[in-house]
Design a protein around this nucleic acid. Structure first.
Length: 319
DNA sequence: CTAATTTGACCTAG
DNA sequence: CTAGGTCAAATTAG
C-alpha cells in the first residue's frame, strides 16, 4: 500500500498547485486587509468609514479564496466548509431556518436557538498520530471542547485552528491520552490547514516556503514510502515557541518519563540554529519508528498501530 | 482590557 | 435513543 498523504492528496498535481496558489492569494489578501486596517487606524482617526468599502472588498476576496480552497480540499464532501468560511467574525445570523419566534418555547433556558447552527463534517480527511508526549505541530490550536469518551480512561480534548475566524481555516484535531504509564497521546487531525500562520521560530520555515512549489518540496523516503511535505503534512512538527497551557500540566506531571524519550529522539532539544538537519532526522526517526512497527504486523493490541489514516482520502481522478 | 480555556447544554450521525 | 462533536456563556489567564 502506498503511503499516501492525507492532507491534500490532490487528485492531481494541478489541484495541488491550484491550492497553493489560492493559499497564496488568500494570504496576500489578508496582508492587504491588515494593511488597510492599519492605515485606517492611524491616518484618519475621526473618519473611519472611508475605508469601509475597501475593507469590504478585501473581505469578499478573502471569502472567495477561502471558499475555493474549501471546495478544492474536500471536493466531493458536503458544504460544511463553505459555511464557516466567512472570513470575519459575523456569526451568520439569520441562520438557515428563519425562526421568527419561539426562542424559549422549545428550550426553556435563555439559550439562543442553535439548531442548524453547525454541521458535523462528514467526510473530511483525517489521520492520527501518536506521541509519547504532547508535541506541538506548529499550528495555533484553540481548545473548544472536552468530552468523556466511552471506554476510555481519559477525556478527549477538541481543538480547532485559532485562525478559523481570521482566515476561515477549518482544521481541527482532537487529542486523547490513551496510556498513562508510558504516556501516550493520540492526536487525530481532521481537515487540513488553509491558514498560513505557523509558529516557526526561524529555521524550518525555509523548509516550507522556499521549497519549489512543483513537487520536490521535501522528501522523506523510507522503506517503501515516499513522503512529500506539502504545506501541512502532519509529521512536520516543528518547534514551538511556547508550550500551551493544556500541555503544560501534562508535561509537568510526567516530566520524568518523557525527558529521556525526547532526548533520545533528538527532538525539541536542539537549538534552532542547526535544526534543519536535525529536524529531519528527528522526524525520520519518529516516522521510521511508527512505520517500522507497521510493516511487521502490528495487530490489534489496542490498535495503537501508529499512523492510521482514518478516512478514505479518495483521490478522485476525474471520471 | 483582550484572548484563551472551561464546561454544560445543544446538536447530529448512527 | 446514545455517543461523540460543537457551541457559547462564564471563567480565567495574559
Amino acid at each position: 500500500m502506498e503511503c499516501t498523504w492525507p492532507e491534500s492528496i490532490p487528485s492531481s498535481k494541478k489541484t495541488a498547485s491550484a491550492i497553493e496558489e489560492l493559499v497564496q492569494g488568500r494570504d496576500i489578501a489578508n496582508q492587504l486587509r491588515s494593511l488597510l486596517n492599519k492605515s485606517a487606524g492611524d491616518n484618519n482617526n475621526n473618519n473611519n468609514n472611508k475605508a469601509a468599502p475597501a475593507e469590504d472588498l478585501v473581505l469578499k476576496i478573502l471569502k472567495s479564496f477561502t471558499n475555493s480552497l474549501s471546495i478544492l480540499n474536500n471536493a466531493d464532501s458536503d458544504e460544511v466548509s463553505q459555511i464557516q468560511a466567512n472570513t470575519h467574525v459575523t456569526n451568520w445570523n439569520g441562520g438557515p431556518k428563519s425562526s421568527e419566534s419561539s426562542e424559549e418555547t422549545s428550550r426553556s433556558t435563555a439559550h439562543k436557538d442553535r439548531r442548524g447552527c453547525y454541521k458535523r463534517r462528514k467526510t473530511a480527511q483525517s489521520w492520527t498520530k501518536e506521541t509519547p508526549s504532547l508535541t506541538d505541530d506548529g499550528y495555533a490550536w484553540r481548545k473548544y471542547g472536552q468530552k468523556v469518551i466511552l471506554n476510555a480512561k481519559f477525556p478527549r480534548h477538541y481543538y480547532r485552528c485559532t485562525h478559523k475566524h481570521d482566515q476561515g481555516c477549518l482544521a481541527t484535531k482532537h487529542v486523547q491520552r490513551i496510556h498513562d504509564d508510558p504516556p501516550k497521546y493520540r492526536s487525530t487531525y481532521i481537515g487540513h490547514h488553509t491558514c498560513r500562520n505557523r509558529n516557526f521560530l526561524k529555521g524550518p520555515e525555509l523548509f516550507l516556503d522556499s521549497s519549489p512549489p512543483s513537487d520536490s518540496s521535501v522528501l522523506l523516503s523510507f522503506d517503501n514510502s515516499t513522503i512529500t511535505n506539502k504545506q501541512d503534512s502532519p509529521f512536520f512538527t516543528s518547534f514551538q515557541p511556547s508550550i500551551k497551557q493544556e500541555y503544560k500540566e501534562e508535561i509537568l506531571s510526567d516530566h520524568n518519563d518523557i525527558a529521556h524519550i525526547q532526548s533520545s529522539s533528538s527532538d525539541y532539544l536542539v537549538s534552532p540554529d542547526r535544526t534543519v538537519a536535525f529536524e529531519s532526522l528527528a522526524h525520520m526517526s519518529v516516522l521510521s519508528s511508527t512505520l517500522d512497527s507497521d510493516n511487521g504486523d502490528v495487530i490489534s493490541g489496542d490498535m495503537m498501530g501508529s499512523v492510521e489514516f482514518g478516512d478514505d482520502f479518495l483521490i478522485d481522478d476525474f471520471p
